[in-house]
């Protein structure tokens, strides 16, 4: 399980023993490229096993429960707070132009297109991605993955694919719930506290939010879900089979997921303009 190591030698050192910054930078770049390649190859293998994995839907359902249902409380709580903050900030801003009735529209668009998918993915990476990664990593460290291999059961099909699919299905659902609760939070501030007319709040939202916006949010959350789940199962599957190795892999999962989600968000937003 060490074949994913970068294919080049150790970082060359300067004569005074310090790592030369140029070669260090080159080595980091090479590492990154090698990693992208390794993840892509793993994705191909994983996708090949996703259809056979559908034969056992109960495994996938269990993972949707694990990754999705167990993140529900934290997602709803965060959605509520984000919605309430949007309500306060939006009201402050819109009031200056005398258009506080547009609050419903602003909050809904912000949540559905941007904050819902992004924050859900970040929370998912922290809550479910880490547990996916450490779970698979520990199974590797305790020879359970090897035992499956020896029983002629592909661990990618039996362990990795259900977890990946579970995450892929759970994130869009969680993002939708996040956005709904968020809109409720904004309504709580705007209508209940700031006395915007409920009718205008909702009708403005209804006329401004189209199917296109919902689709944008949906596509984003599917992509983010795939990215976060893929990174988590990749890191877990390739973790060094030691306690330290699993810990490091878990940390890497969160960090790379967060960066990747924000990067993908920028690219997708630009593409949807």
């Amino acid at each position: 399980m060490h074949e994913h190591k970068a294919p080049h030698g150790p970082i060359p050192r300067r004569r005074d023993g310090r790592v030369s910054s140029l070669s260090q930078r080159r080595s980091i770049a090479l590492d990154a490229v090698a990693k992208v390649g390794a993840v892509a190859l793993f994705l191909v293998r994983l996708l090949g096993q996703c259809i056979p994995a559908l034969v056992r839907p109960q495994l996938i359902i269990r993972q949707i429960y694990n990754a999705g249902a167990r993140s529900l409380v934290i997602i709803m709580l965060c959605g509520l707070f984000v919605g309430m903050v949007l309500g306060l900030q939006g009201y402050q801003l819109l009031q200056r132009f005398g258009s506080e009735s547009a609050l419903g529209m602003a909050a809904a668009l912000g949540l559905i297109k941007e904050l819902g998918p992004v924050l859900t993915a970040l929370l998912f990476a922290g809550r479910a991605g880490t547990s996916l990664c450490s779970e698979i990593g520990l199974m590797g460290a305790t020879d359970q993955l090897a035992a499956m291999e020896m029983m002629a059961v592909d661990p990618v099909r039996h362990v990795v694919a259900p977890r990946f699919l579970g995450g892929l299905i759970a994130v869009p659902l969680l993002a939708a719930i996040f956005s709904c609760v968020g809109i409720y939070g904004a309504q709580l501030i705007g209508v209940t506290m700031m006395r915007i007319q409920a009718g205008t709040f909702w009708s403005q939202m209804q006329s401004a939010v189209g199917l296109r916006d919902v689709n944008e949010g949906l596509i984003k959350s599917v992509v983010f879900g795939a990215a976060c789940s893929l990174l988590a199962v990749y890191e877990g599957f390739h973790a060094e089979p030691t306690a330290e190795g699993v810990g490091l892999a878990t940390t890497r999962t969160v960090v790379t997921s967060a960066v990747l989600v924000l990067l993908l968000d920028y690219m997708l937003t630009a593409a949807f303009l």
């Binding site: 359970q144 035992a147 020896m150 592909d154």
Partner: peptide
């Protein structure tokens, strides 16, 4: 290939040194 290897492994039972039960 992986598939043939798996076919071969189905004919063999292996007892791991540490058991390796699925927890």
């Amino acid at each position: 290939e992986r598939r043939e290897l798996y076919k071969l492994r189905q004919r063999v039972g292996l007892l791991f040194q540490n058991g390796a039960l699925l927890t």
